[in-house]
């Protein structure tokens, strides 16, 4: 299922196309946030800048889909929920490409998967 970027997220998806995992840094209080939107939920400042992260994260949880939840996706496949190492409050989901089963708390890194000319997606693999 192709993502449909909105007016808040278009720049974030463009960064992913450049193989960058970026989050916003609030110019008011320094809090890093994801997903992209205009206002900081901590201090309400509207000024911010992009910060490219190191792509490191830790596994928070995971599932293995055994049912065909979407016509385009053949089960089984594993989806992980991760918290970024540099900003544990930033939570991302993605395909697991680790081979074996994830482990809670396991360090992982982002892998950029070029689906086609217009779309790059993020997957996660063990950081070793």
């Amino acid at each position: 299922m192709r993502p449909v970027p909105d007016r808040d997220s278009a720049e974030w998806w463009a960064a992913v196309r450049r193989r960058e995992l970026a989050v916003q840094e609030c110019a008011g209080c320094g809090t890093w946030r994801f997903p992209a939107r205009a206002y900081c939920p901590v201090c309400r400042a509207r000024e911010w800048r992009w910060r490219v992260t190191d792509g490191r994260a830790r596994v928070s949880s995971w599932i293995v889909a055994h049912q065909r939840f979407h016509p385009a996706l053949a089960p089984p496949y594993t989806v992980v929920r991760v918290c970024l190492a540099q900003a544990p409050g930033c939570v991302l989901y993605g395909t697991w490409v680790g081979g074996g089963e994830p482990v809670a708390g396991e360090p992982v890194r982002a892998v950029f998967t070029e689906v086609d000319e217009g779309l790059t997606l993020i997957a996660w693999e063990p950081a070793g």
């Binding site: 993502p3 998806w13 599932i63 939840f69 989806v79």
Partner: peptide, 14 residues
Amino acid sequence: GPEVQYQAPYGYVA
């Protein structure tokens, strides 16, 4: 919903 774009591409939909 704004979160769907960050989940659905990975088959996380239901």
